[in-house]
Amino acid sequence: MAKLKLKEHIINQEWCKGCGICVHFCPKKVLALDDNDKVMVVLPDDCICCKMCELRCPDLAIEVITD
């Protein structure tokens, strides 16, 4: 399988409840919670596009877009 290349993370701040599951389980620590306990991308260049943040999000609030 060809390696996926990140285009962007789409985060739905309205839906995110700040549970931190995506932040904790990200293998490359790409994500963090901001001051309002909403998820944000801090190290986009490190993203390996495994999409586990998207699949484990209980709020359907994060999407990993690849080229």
Binding site: E14, W15, K17, G18, C19, G20, I21, L55, R56, C57, P58, D59, L60, A61
Partner: peptide
């Protein structure tokens, strides 16, 4: 596949049920 107007859903922050819905 969802009724977007009802989101965010009622489940608590971190509830596993949302992950089940997602997948």
């Amino acid at each position: 596949y969802i009724r977007e107007r009802f989101f965010p859903h009622i489940w608590c922050s971190g509830c596993g049920h949302g992950i089940i819905l997602n997948n």
